[in-house]
């Protein structure tokens, strides 16, 4: 097994009285793709948001390469640059062009040269088939195109790990494919990713490891996705997977 990139130890998260994540521990290795599935409200999105400290946590720790990720820490900006994140929707800046969206953080946060950043942005756009849309505004793009741009925007910061939070959940079905293909390509190139999704076929194809989360706890974890999706060990996972199947009696 390659080296550990991200370590989560006994993560505990509550909203007021409600426990959202209860004692979650996980190790993510370099180049690994982990898919987190589970019923809505199980805490999987919150889990991702805790990793780059968009949420504060009530216990445990998140370590990236041995360095703590903490919301109120001085180096939180540096840490977040190393953790890319794509959201469900509305995350592009509507008043900026596609190119400006992608290069804003590299220029303003990483202080990179504008020309360099733009050159890289265009190369990345080309990879996702949007090289001619650089000067368009987000509202001129379809939902699938927007999400591809959002992925490129995250990639342009050269993150060590990518968090994808239900990035196709707000899309029309015919646009899901184009976005997921991009993610599949990233996986082939060895990107480290933590993915929350409801697309089970996609999860099965891309995952090195599957985590089934329910009520804030990891109910089942499997390093063999094929087996997990065919024959999960726990009854709750089986019940959950069953909801995606349709049969005519």
């Amino acid at each position: 097994m390659s080296e550990t990139l991200l370590t989560i130890n006994n993560l505990h998260k509550t909203f007021g009285e409600k426990v959202v994540l209860d004692d979650i521990s996980l190790e993510v290795h370099k180049g690994e793709v982990i898919v987190v599935i589970g019923p809505s409200g199980c805490g999987k999105s919150t889990f991702l948001r805790c990793i780059n400290a968009l949420e504060d946590i009530q216990g445990g720790e998140v370590l990236l390469d041995g360095e703590k990720v903490r919301k109120d820490a001085k180096n939180i900006s540096q840490m977040r640059q190393r953790i890319g994140m794509v959201f469900q929707s509305y995350d592009l800046f509507p008043h900026k062009t596609v190119l400006q969206n992608i290069t804003l953080a590299p220029i303003k946060v990483q202080k990179r040269d504008k020309k360099d950043a733009e050159k890289e942005a265009l190369e990345l756009l080309k990879k996702v088939g949007l090289e001619d849309r650089g000067n368009d505004y987000p509202r001129q793009l379809s939902g699938g195109q927007k999400q591809r741009v959002a992925i490129v925007r995250a990639l342009c910061m050269h993150p060590e790990i990518l968090l994808l939070d239900e990035i196709t959940a707000a899309l029309d079905p015919e646009m899901v494919r184009e976005v997921l293909d991009v993610v599949l390509n990233l996986a082939k190139q060895g990107s480290t990713m933590l993915i929350v999704t409801h697309e089970m076929a996609f999860a099965r194809a891309i995952a090195d490891r599957v985590i089934f989360l329910e009520n804030g706890v990891i109910v089942e974890e499997s390093a063999n996705p094929e087996e997990f999706f065919e024959k999960p060990e726990t009854e709750r996972a089986a019940k959950f997977l069953k909801t995606f199947e349709f049969e005519r009696e």
Binding site: R49, N52, L54, S77, Q78, R80, Q81, I83, G84, M85, F87, Q88, S89, Y90, D91, L92, F93, L104, A105, K108, V109, Q110, A150, R153, A154, M157
Partner: peptide
């Protein structure tokens, strides 16, 4: 999410 995606980019 505008605030969040900006923060997630390290701003």
């Amino acid at each position: 999410v505008q605030y969040e995606s900006a923060r997630a980019l390290g701003m």
